[in-house]
Simulated scan of single mutants.
Amino acid sequence: MSKFGELVNLEIPVLLDFYTEWNEASVKMHPVLRDVAATMGEKARVIKIDVDKNTQLAEALRVKGLPTLMIYKNGEMKWRESGEQDADSILSKLNEFQ
């Protein structure tokens, strides 16, 4: 969990994607998030978290639906949404927290 604190305690927005490889909606989000990461460059960070490999973290954050996306900045959760999202919506949210 201490590593998690280091990941999200940045001055730029950090987008977390909680996913599994067996969840179709999660897999569909992979190319969308690649595009988001490429567009944002150094202005934001995109981190994928496999729920199957990080069950404690997923439980602590009450991740139920997949994919679940969260934006953190300076260690504080700013936004959270479950389900598929399009790149424009995600980029718009990230830009809100610049």
Rank of each mutant, 00 (worst) to 15 (best):
M1H: 13
M1D: 15
S2N: 11
G5N: 11
E6A: 12
L7A: 12
L7G: 03
L7N: 05
L7H: 03
V8T: 13
N9F: 06
E11N: 13
I12Y: 08
I12G: 09
I12H: 12
P13H: 08
V14L: 10
L16E: 11
T20Y: 05
T20Q: 04
E21Y: 04
W22H: 08
E24C: 00
A25L: 13
A25T: 06
V27P: 05
M29G: 04
P31D: 07
P31G: 02
L33Y: 08
D35Y: 10
D35P: 02
V36M: 02
V36L: 09
V36Q: 06
V36P: 02
A38L: 04
T39D: 12
M40D: 05
M40Q: 14
M40A: 10
M40F: 02
M40E: 13
G41T: 01
G41A: 01
E42M: 03
K43Q: 10
K43E: 13
A44W: 02
R45Y: 07
V46Q: 03
V46G: 00
V46C: 02
V46D: 01
I47F: 09
I47N: 05
K48M: 08
I49P: 03
V51D: 11
V51C: 11
D52H: 06
D52S: 14
K53S: 03
N54F: 06
N54M: 05
T55N: 07
Q56R: 15
L57D: 12
L57C: 08
E59D: 14
A60Y: 11
A60H: 09
A60C: 08
A60D: 09
R62K: 13
G65H: 07
L66Q: 08
P67Q: 05
P67N: 04
L69F: 06
Y72H: 04
K73W: 01
N74F: 03
G75Q: 04
G75T: 05
E76K: 15
M77T: 15
W79V: 03
R80N: 08
R80I: 12
R80K: 11
R80H: 07
R80S: 14
S82A: 12
G83W: 00
E84H: 00
E84F: 01
A87C: 05
I90N: 04
L91G: 14
L91Q: 11
S92I: 15
L94R: 10
E96Q: 07
F97H: 15
F97C: 12
Q98C: 07
Q98L: 10
